[in-house]
Nucleic acid binder design. Sequence first.
DNA 1: CCGTGATTATTTGTATACGAATCTTGCAAT
DNA 2: ATTGCAAGATTCGTATACAAATAATCACGG
Lengths: 174, 174
Amino acid sequence: MAADKNLIGEINNNLRHLIQLLQTRSKKIRKETGITGPQLLAMKTLTEFPDISISELARRIYLHPATVVGIVDRLEGRSFVKRRRSKTDLRQVNVRLTAKGKGALQKAPGAARAPVLDGLETLPDRKLKRLSVSLAQLVRILDLSAKGPILKRRRGRPRKEESMPVKRRGRKSS
Amino acid sequence: MAADKNLIGEINNNLRHLIQLLQTRSKKIRKETGITGPQLLAMKTLTEFPDISISELARRIYLHPATVVGIVDRLEGRSFVKRRRSKTDLRQVNVRLTAKGKGALQKAPGAARAPVLDGLETLPDRKLKRLSVSLAQLVRILDLSAKGPILKRRRGRPRKEESMPVKRRGRKSS
DNA sequence: CCGTGATTATTTGTATACGAATCTTGCAAT
DNA sequence: ATTGCAAGATTCGTATACAAATAATCACGG
């Protein structure tokens, strides 16, 4: 068994398995809390960065804006978050947690608050560090491979806006 | 910055990012080959293990049988695979690649054939080994945490069956 | 032989998840 | 000002992905 091939194949396999485990985990959290993993992640992010736009939220949780629209739709449907059209830039829509949303977050059990890492705390620091480094390396490699030789610079500027009701736009309103 | 919290948070973050990168990768493969990542994975698995049941295929690629049904549906729709009801166990449905499916696999570019690891080969063996070990560790921890204290033994027995046309069953046929 | 529970594939329902198209708004160059 | 292009949010279409329910079959005990 060629060492290289097997190593890479094993990594591949473990990645598949890993993703499936995280998926199952999300389902379990949903059964326990009524909130899915991505929804929880979005709300957690909104705790840390209140009132950010859809796009910025998407960037922070590594999702496509179109995906985040759906997640926010569902959260808003349950009154966990609220949308507001930005005053300074009418294209943007800002999202923020409601009191009900904050309450739901607090009621979520520990497993939900730390979306991944139940057993990780039992690992010695050394292995934890190694895991972190390896993951970062993997991400970096995939990232470069994805973006190719191009490297895009992005400057973020602070934003401040206030309220305003939100009217949907886009291709078609039902 | 508390070392522990940050490490775990970073791992979490990198996992998110990693999943998104793999997702994007799958889409790119689809544009290039017309076949998605999971479909490709299923076909690759069928190359290695021809004529296995839906359940076994699902186990091998770490997916829920219900998910695999959809994937096989689409592959069968394009005549890349074929379903056959097992003769020895009428509950099972076996899947195998067609000539067209094999051809499509061969035509898939290198990136598609190694679903993840373009840049990985450039890594020195030492780092590769560390990555593999860390991933395995992570998977093991999540797996245990998912299954809890219970450990289920599964014995797989070999299966051999032959042809037969497939008629759909289940809740309702359209 | 007959019932009972387990196994297998499927369907249904719901939630991600992304790309492409679209509309609105912002911004800069002419 | 006008034109044109970029950025933001949304919709649509498609593909994962899983749990629960369902139907068929199997394996087994009596």
